[in-house]
């Protein structure tokens, strides 16, 4: 699956631009991460000193972190640690009070949610954010809405360009629906699907635009163990098929450790650990944050 089906030239141009100018400039202060191989920027996401407060309550306190391209990075932490706030800042739903954000090699002072898709960033939401009145097919196709060029008149009058555009988008959506094993449900209204499938539709809507960075806010919340491992399989497969970086929030430590290349731990809006799953798991600060003592944290579902 490639981006060739629509404005491939534009995508190539963007990639080339990113490759040329940003790798050096955006190299983060934190050392210890080997430079990425291949084309494009080495880092999909770099935050430096990002802070966010609601009134007097600090949600994020000077968060700096670096997500390498192609990596699956999990953000974990107790409830209220600031995980969702972090994703919301990166996707432009909240504006950070301080700090800088570098998205896909591009320094953005304030991310604008309405431009997110065009930047190559897609996200899902903690509580399902699907369009209940649309079919699975239309929900997934809506992830490509930013690629449409036709206007309402040509759509209603059925002018030639529109049909071709509709066909391309329908085909691309069908590919993604297939990829996520949703083909049997294409015409169903999304509101009638069980919860686990709805979560999958939301992932499909995010993946359909072939994003470079995928933000998943608790993609496995409320799922059974089987559904979780299925979902983890889809995330892994998506990364393998696309040139994709994934940042996800997850509570299930077992899933996180198995899926991630990189784990960031937040507590009370501060970053308390950052590293490989094994390193984070052994970190005394993490253990303290989770259970208040240094007795093991091997179990699931913390």
């Amino acid at each position: 699956m490639t981006t060739a089906w629509l404005d491939a030239a534009a995508a190539d141009g963007l990639r080339a631009a990113l490759r040329n100018k940003t790798v050096e400039r955006s190299r983060p202060a934190e050392a210890g991460i080997a430079a990425s191989v291949g084309s494009g920027p080495a880092y999909a996401l770099v935050l430096a000193g990002v802070s966010l407060a609601f009134g007097g309550v600090s949600a994020l306190d000077g968060i700096s972190l670096t997500v390498r391209r192609g990596e699956i990075c999990s953000i974990i932490g107790p409830n209220g640690a600031g995980k969702s706030s972090l994703i919301n800042v990166v996707s432009g739903l909240y504006a950070a009070d301080r700090g800088t954000i570098n998205l896909l090699g591009k320094r953005v002072d304030k991310v604008r949610a309405s431009h997110l898709a065009r930047l190559g960033v897609a996200r899902t939401f903690q509580n399902l954010a699907l369009f209940g009145g649309l079919s699975v097919r239309d929900n997934v196709a809506s992830g490509l809405v930013h690629k449409r060029r036709s206007n309402v008149f040509s759509q209603v009058l059925g002018l030639p360009g529109t049909a071709a555009e509709n066909r391309r988008i329908r085909e691309r959506a069908a590919e993604t629906i297939d990829f996520l094993g949703l083909s049997a449900h294409g015409d169903q209204l999304v509101a009638t699907l069980p919860y686990g499938l709805q979560k999958r539709v939301e992932l499909a809507r995010a993946l359909v635009a072939d994003p470079a960075l995928l933000l998943l806010d608790e993609p496995m919340a409320g799922m059974t163990a089987t559904e979780k491992s299925e979902m983890a399989g889809f995330v892994r497969a998506a990364r393998a098929h696309h040139d994709l970086t994934v940042v996800l929030i997850e509570h299930d430590i077992g899933v996180v450790m198995g899926l991630s290349d990189h784990v960031v731990v937040l507590d009370y809006g501060r970053k308390i650990a950052d590293g490989t799953p094994a390193a984070v798991r052994a970190d005394p600060a993490v253990i303290r944050a989770y259970i208040g003592s240094t007795d093991g944290v091997g179990g699931e579902g913390i």
Binding site: S91, A113, L116, R118, R123, G132, G133, L134, S142
Partner: peptide
Amino acid sequence: RNFIAVRDNETAARVIGV
């Protein structure tokens, strides 16, 4: 479909580029 998207979830609609 954009109308319905805005009705059903305005935030999600904005994020996907509606």
